[in-house]
C-alpha cells in the first residue's frame, strides 16, 4: 500500500513548496480560481495541495541588479495596484490588478495564480505580454524563464511541467518616454471578467511621434495575443488616423468566440475600441501626464468624460 500524499501542506519556504510540488501536490495561494472552479464542478479539487500563501520569499517586488523588476509569484493584486514602482513604470499592470474582482479577491488573489491559471480573459496577461515579461518556473533542480507566449498554450492550459512552480515574473526596464495602460470592456465594475480588453505600451520619440508600440488583447483568442504589424505606426503622431489604424489592426487580429457575455462580432469590434483607448492613455502617460489607476475608472469608459478625452486627442 502506497503512502497517501499529505492532503494539505502549509509551506513556509520556497524549498518546502518546490519539494511538495515535485511530489505531486498542487500549489494554492488565494484559491480564487482553484476553489471556485472546484465548487462550480468545473475541475475537482486536487487530492493533495501545498499552500504557498505564507512563503514570504514569494511576496516581494524588487529591482534586480540590471534594473529589471522582479515580482514574486505570491504578490497579491492589492499589493501590485498600490506598488509605487509598478504604478510609476509598469502602469498597465497596476490598471489591470486594480480591476480584478473585489477588495476580497485582490487581497488573496496573486499574480502567479493569474498567470498560471492561463485564462484568455485574465486581466494581468495583456500587460505582461506588452512588457515582454519573463515567467520564472522553478523545480527542486533549478529555474528557467520563458515568455508569456511560450507559457500560454490554450485556454486554462500552460506549457509548465507538473513539477514546476511559478516563482517570479521578471520585466525588463522600459525605454525613456514610455507609458502604458490597460483598458477593458466590462458590464459591471466589480467581480467582473473582461468582455474584451487591451494593454498598450507606447514609447515616444523626442519629437513626440511614436518610437515604439506594443499591444496585447484580452479575451479574443484561446490565449492572450500580441498584435502584429504595429511597425507602420513608427514615426507617426498620435491622432485620429493612427488610432484608427490601431483599432483596425486589433479588430482584424481578434479571433473571439461567441458566448453569453458577447458575440464574436461585438468582441471583434470592441477590442479595437479598447486598443485605441489603451494606446491613447499609454501615449499620454508617456508624455508624463498623470492618469490615475485604473484607467477604466479615471477616464470612465463610455462616459462623457471618455468622449471629451478622446476628442481632445484628435
Amino acid at each position: 500500500m502506497t503512502e497517501r500524499p499529505n492532503p494539505l501542506l502549509i509551506a513556509n519556504t520556497i524549498d518546502e513548496a518546490l519539494d511538495a510540488v515535485s511530489r505531486g501536490s498542487t500549489p494554492i495561494a488565494g484559491g480564487t480560481d482553484l476553489v471556485v472552479g472546484a465548487r462550480q464542478g468545473n475541475k475537482r479539487l486536487p487530492a493533495s495541495l501545498v499552500a504557498i500563501d505564507r512563503v514570504e520569499e514569494l511576496q516581494s517586488i524588487g529591482l534586480d541588479s540590471d534594473g529589471s523588476l522582479s515580482i514574486g509569484s505570491g504578490v497579491t493584486h492589492a499589493t501590485l495596484m498600490s506598488s509605487t514602482v509598478v504604478v510609476t513604470n509598469y502602469t498597465a499592470l497596476a490598471d489591470a490588478a486594480a480591476l480584478i474582482g473585489s477588495p476580497a479577491t485582490r487581497n488573496v488573489g496573486t499574480i502567479g495564480g493569474n498567470v498560471m491559471n492561463g485564462s484568455p480573459a485574465m486581466d494581468t496577461g495583456a500587460p505582461l505580454a506588452v512588457f515582454d515579461a519573463m515567467i520564472q518556473l522553478s523545480t527542486v533542480a533549478g529555474n528557467r524563464q520563458i515568455t508569456t507566449s511560450e507559457l500560454w498554450v490554450a485556454p486554462g492550459q500552460t506549457s509548465a511541467e507538473p513539477d514546476e512552480l511559478c516563482t517570479a515574473i521578471i520585466i525588463a526596464p522600459q525605454p525613456d518616454r514610455s507609458g502604458s495602460a490597460y483598458v477593458r470592456l466590462e458590464y459591471r465594475r466589480s467581480m467582473e471578467i473582461a468582455v474584451v480588453g487591451a494593454a498598450a505600451v507606447v514609447t515616444l520619440g523626442l519629437d513626440g511621434t511614436i518610437a515604439g508600440c506594443r499591444i496585447a488583447l484580452t479575451a479574443v483568442a484561446p490565449t492572450i495575443v500580441l498584435v502584429d504589424g504595429l511597425e507602420s505606426l513608427i514615426g507617426q503622431a498620435i491622432g485620429e488616423a493612427t488610432l484608427a489604424t490601431v483599432a483596425d489592426l486589433a479588430s482584424s487580429q481578434a479571433a473571439p468566440i461567441s458566448d453569453l457575455r458577447a458575440s464574436e462580432q461585438y468582441r471583434s469590434h470592441s477590442v479595437g475600441v479598447m486598443a485605441k483607448r489603451a494606446v491613447l492613455a499609454a501615449a499620454r502617460r508617456a508624455t508624463g501626464e498623470s492618469i490615475s489607476v485604473p484607467v477604466n475608472r479615471s477616464i470612465g469608459v463610455g462616459s462623457d468624460g471618455q468622449r471629451q478625452w478622446e476628442a481632445g486627442a484628435s
Partner: peptide, 27 residues
C-alpha cells in the same frame, strides 16, 4: 451565491476581507 460573487459570506482573515465560500477552511 456560494460562487464568490455576492459577498454575503465575507469574513476577516488576519484583518483582511475574504469570501469564506471560496476559501478552504484548512487553509
Amino acid at each position: 451565491c456560494d460562487d464568490c460573487e455576492c459577498g454575503a459570506c465575507m469574513v476577516l482573515l488576519d484583518g483582511q476581507p475574504v469570501n469564506s465560500c471560496s476559501y478552504l477552511a484548512a487553509q
